[in-house]
Amino acid sequence: MSKTIDLDLVRHIGKLSRIALSEQEVGTFAAQLAGILEYFGKLQELDTEGVEPMAHAVQLHNVLADDVPGESLTPEQALANAPDRDGDFFKVPKVIGDSQ
């Protein structure tokens, strides 16, 4: 499965990933990602018909905890690393803008 990556696709993946890309990055990543995806395509050679996908190596059954409140971070601890805050809230720019 040789996959060509055009510049628009890289811009699209950048958007999906919420990473703003410069035009120079778009060009560099297009070449690099194409090479890596081609390598990934190697797996298509393998017959995996009927094989159960394995997301985790160690089988664990449902791990349940008692439904009792435990220790958690105080608002002050949770906000200590916040780039911006307003009282006990994380502060962000306007979310619902005129442009939406």
Binding site: I13, S17, R18, A20, F29, L37
Partner: peptide, 26 residues
């Protein structure tokens, strides 16, 4: 920044190095 998506995208663009960006994108 104009909106919150731009805040995410610019902060991540400035904070992450190239290998981290490649892996997230792939």
């Amino acid at each position: 920044v104009e909106d919150i998506v731009e805040l995410f995208s610019r902060s991540r663009a400035e904070g992450f190095g190239p290998e981290v960006k490649r892996r997230i994108m792939l």
